[in-house]
Structures are given as C-alpha cells and as structure tokens.
Design a protein around this nucleic acid. Structure first.
Lengths: 145, 145
DNA sequence: TTATTAGATTATAATCTTTATAATTAGTTT
DNA sequence: AAACTAATTATAAAGATTATAATCTAATAA
C-alpha cells in the first residue's frame, strides 16, 4: 500500500540525477514503511542482515542525500542522535519524555507565527518546527501501577 | 540591571539545596548576562581566563544541574552541539540558517496546540517547543552583494 | 572558629555519534 | 560492452558528552 510512495520517491531520485543503489533503495524503503522515527543506527541495524557488508557511513551518506532532496527530514531532539522522518505530509510530533515514543499529529500550519516572526525579527522565514512534550498514556498507566 | 535575576537564580539554587561554587556561580552569571545562546564550549572558553583550571566536565555538570532545577533550557538544533538559554520568560526563537544566529521573539503561548495534541494523541502534554527558520537581514544583505 | 561531610571539581579516559579519506566497486549512459 | 562518475566500504579521525576516581571545598553544626 505504500508501494506508490516508494515509487514516487524513486522517481524523485531519478529526476534529481541520484543513482539508485540497492543500499539507498533499502534505506528509503525502510524509512517509508517505518512508523517509528528511526536513528541512523536503527536503520543500520535493521538492514545489516540484508546487507552484511554495508558501512554505517553509507547510511549517513544516504540520509544526507535524501534530506538534501527533500524526501527526508532530520529531527534533532534532546537525545544524543538524530532521528529521521519521511517528509510525506505536514504534521507535528508529540514526544513522550518517559519512553521516547514519537507520535504524529495534525494541526493547521502555524503561518501566523511565521509572518509575525518575520515582522519582529526581520528574518525571511522559510519554515518552522514545533513539537509537544509530555507523557504517553502507556507510561502514565505504568507509573500508576 | 540583571543583578536581581542573578540573585533570584541563586536563591532558587539555595532553596533546592544546591551548593553555590565559584564555577557554578560563574556559569550562571554568564548565562544570565549573555544575549546569545552559548554552547557548553562557548561558556568554557569564556570562563577559562577566570578559572584556568576548570574542567569541561564542570561546565556540563553545572548545565545539567541548572537544567534540572529549571533555571536553564537546553536547545538542540541541527548543529552538533546543544545551546543553553536562561529560562526567563516565555519566548520563541528565530534561527538563521546561514549564520546560525538566534533571535528571540514573543508570541502568545500555543495552548490550543497543546490541548489538541492531548486529545488526538492521548498524551499528557507538559510543554512544547517551536522555532522558525530562515535568513536574517544581515545575511540577505550580504548575499545580495 | 573549626571539624565534618556530602557534594563539587579536576584530570583523564571512554563512549558515542558523525564525518573525512582513500581505495574499490558498481549504476548509468553511450 | 566500455567508460565515466558516483557510491560504497573500511578505516580513521573528529567532536560532543559522559564516566571514573582522586582531590578539594561549601555548608552546616559543634
């Protein structure tokens, strides 16, 4: 069902003149089918059975390429490593401070904030990021015994 | 003029039972008087003339303590190192993608987003973060020759 | 004021994530 | 199928942050 998304992404790669190698294909496929927001190491571990000789650098290189093309977003939260997210549609993130889980949610784009910020700061604003932090229901249930 | 802010912060430390060492005092003072949003290394470098023997670990330890008490916020952007910000009043950040400058701006708190996110995700939301990205006027002027 | 004690600092090493380098391999185009 | 160039691999290096153990000191109370 996410086949067309993968195909679309591959088309975008071709249009950008980026070669489609098996490793690159696998990283992209994994990101598209993944509901979580994996780190580079998550992806590396997930693919190592299929590509036993793949280098970590390959994962990073491909994530950089995919980010530069706009297919992937890099999320830098408080924890030590970046997370990567397929840039499908506009959405925001809710992050559980207990277990680290990331859940997507939709909300109208904060265009007003962007235009006010432009006026106040003199910046040319291209985009923004926003996320909410708290405790997910599972962790609340656990802490309540 | 920011003396009272420093004094307030020191009172908070005392109430929390945290010792006030010269190094800790200096880190706190630097953060309060700083208009930028320094990295741990910035702080380390700024204080090394006054404390030639201070260890980097001390800076990190103190930043952690100050963060845990709520006096300081840790900002993790795309770049490699965290930035630290005195948690004075509610404000958001505009970040220049060219030179890295961070400018504060005020906007009404996004309480609506928080409550919607709670409903949709089932989270207990404690806070959020939001910032806008773009190009500052200086960098726009430079790139226009 | 001094002694005590738990916490803080220092110096150092270790860890972890990410990037750089050089040699080899392999997509893509002709 | 050959050639060209980008991608991959293996490895090392860099940079940020944390861990450890020994030493020191701020705060408290005798």
């Amino acid at each position: 069902m996410s086949d067309h998304r993968l195909q679309d992404a591959i088309d975008t790669l071709k249009e950008s003149g980026v070669r489609i190698t098996p490793q690159r294909h696998a990283v992209l496929e994994y990101l598209i089918q993944s509901m979580s927001h994996p780190t580079a190491d998550d992806i590396y571990k997930a693919l190592e059975s299929k590509f036993p000789n793949m280098s970590v650098a390959t994962v990073y290189n491909n994530l950089r390429v995919l980010r530069e093309i706009g297919l992937v977003r890099e999320l830098t939260y408080g924890d030590s490593s970046s997370r990567f997210d397929c840039n499908t549609s506009d959405h925001y993130h809710a992050i559980c401070e207990t277990c680290g889980k990331i859940v997507d949610f939709h909300y109208p784009r904060l265009d007003e904030v962007e235009s006010l910020a432009e006026q106040v700061t003199g910046f040319n604003v291209s985009h923004h990021r926003m996320e909410v932090y708290g405790t997910c229901s599972e962790c609340r249930a656990k802490s309540a015994h």
